[in-house]
Write a protein that binds this DNA or RNA. Structure first.
Lengths: 197, 197, 197, 197
DNA sequence: TATGAATGAGCATTCATTCAT
DNA sequence: AATGAATGAATGCTCATTCAT
């Protein structure tokens, strides 16, 4: 039965790769089967339809990000360390997964993912938001984050900046590690010139 | 000739609406024609193919954002006012346009948009990035933005935060105008508690 | 009213040229109109349909061959001269018309020409056969053609040889006028070596 | 693999029948499939397109005539016997095949057959001409055919007469076997009255 | 259980024809 | 009378899915 699951995952991996590479409609069941090294009919022994494969692949994707964020949030470390960990995401083999914000990911597939899965996925995303907000609130408790700013807005800033920064990093050839420090400093202190007395 | 262009735009609008609503593959030429109030054949008098309609609609979309940003950048106002204007985008009927970052938009359609148009679109995006960076540099000249932080990283922060904030706003039922102030303050000063002497 | 007929013929000529060049299905009404220098709608002022244009063009073609043969048959000249005239057909601007035997022509279009016109055309062809047979019979009366051979079979030989000879001539670069004599001799005396006494 | 070829041929036969009966454009893929007793999609498992089916059917047709002629030419029999065999073609189930001269056949489809196949077909035809000319030259060697007449012109006469004679035979209800003798005599000795001494 | 040959619903596209100007 | 923009019926082809082996 475990062997069955291994095979299933191989198919799902083929599918994920091809969906990412060529999109849903340009990916044919035959391609998936070929890449997974099985017959076309076999796919239907493990999945009800192409749609189901796609749905599962999507859930898998969003789940992986969710788990990643959840794991970080549950570490017994400081707010700052959690923030750093979140930003390192793309250095752990998850790069390609993180190239797209989960919400944008879902939105771009909203006409392809089965309706009920869209709901599931948004639940994951909503949960992720809560987790991020929890991290922010840990920062407030630690006296690092200003209590007066609503946590959801701070989460916005963190997530948005993080996403754009990822994109920048990916295309930047002269990316330097110190850029990471700069981005943290930016989040902490903003970009305005501080008037010294 | 102008009349011809009006009709053309009506068709393009129908198409845009349906593509946005149902995606490329679920949108049939017949649907587009029906919604535009013309015959199926008429579409082919104005466009070579479904693909061409889609490409044009995409370009139109990215162009509209590009123009919006460009216009703001060319205003004879302060850095701060330009920033404010960028953030108001979604209050001018462009909301639905701005619901997605252009890069994510292009990426989500990268398997559908014709290759040559993907290139065109990325040129627009690249130009938009430059425009935003220019605005940041105006801020530096005005002595408002810290010169030591690379402008592209600041742009990241602005664009990313802006995007996420838009999403938050759209789903927030109790959105208050003061939230706008909060987000600006966040960008300017970050979220860290400032130690007073 | 005569002017009307001139225009009509211009359209028919365009059509004939294009049908011959590209075939029925690759010839669009728009092409015919364009070549005739009129609007697409105008074609429908003069003809009921594309089919009608095609039918008329075909009839015109077969009629032209029929008339050519008929005219020759009615000349007040000897059998031999009539035969020579028939063979000269392709030297009078009718070459391209004669490149195909009318029967083959009709057969190759039997699925395109309207049924009632196929009938008409075969009547023309049948009449042409009779005319050729009449010419052969004139030859018999003149004591030149052997009376014992059925005239229709002789007509076969003349028409078939003539057709193939035309094809040969068209592709032959070193065609010499004396070839014409050879072919006549062949028809008259066959190809067998004659045993002299 | 052989089974696959049998099926393929069944489809090709359906297609050939329908193309012959109704022409290329009036023959729908669905009709071909229906007649072959397979699904529409199956046709595309065996052929790339309707065009490919048509091309193959044409090649098959011209090939069959070519082979027929080639086989006769390679028999170890006299010139006369080869000629007789050629004229019997239509008594061996090839009738319907021979109803049209291959050149006329190709010409009538020149706008439908793929260009590269037209070339292939004309190569077959050209080869057939050479074969016929070889037969004529055998006749010369045997001392039966007059050496002074160019062989290609004699071939013209044979092929042309043969073609027309076939047509006549097909429509003749009172066709008699002795007609065959008459036609041979005609080819050998022509139609002119011979002056006896 | 695994397979891939067979299937046919579904859709983009073409082009003869119409009709308002 | 002449036009050409608008039309939609008609059809080739794709590919997810089935099922006999």
């Amino acid at each position: 039965m475990d062997e069955k699951n291994i095979k299933r995952n191989e198919m799902l991996d083929s599918a994920r790769f091809l969906f990412k590479e060529n999109g849903f409609h340009k990916t044919k069941m035959e391609d998936i089967a070929l890449r997974a090294g099985v017959g076309k009919g076999t796919l239907y022994e493990y999945f009800r339809s192409k749609q189901e494969i796609f749905d599962e692949a999507c859930v898998e994707y969003v789940k992986s990000i969710h788990n990643y964020v959840k794991e970080i949030s549950e570490l017994d470390v400081s707010f700052k360390d959690k923030l750093v960990s979140l930003f390192k995401g793309n250095q752990n083999g998850l790069e390609e997964e993180f190239e797209k914000n989960p919400v944008d990911y879902i939105m771009s597939y909203k006409n392809i993912i089965s309706e009920k899965f869209v709901k599931t996925l948004f639940e994951y995303v909503s949960d992720m938001n809560k987790i991020i907000i929890n991290i922010v609130e840990q920062g407030k408790e630690e006296g690092i984050v200003i209590k007066e700013i609503p946590s959801d807005i701070i989460a916005c800033s963190i997530v948005g900046t993080m996403g754009e920064y990822f994109k920048l990093k990916m295309q930047k050839k002269d990316y330097a590690l110190k850029d990471d420090d700069i981005i943290f400093n930016l989040l902490y202190n903003g970009f305005s010139v501080k008037k010294e007395i």
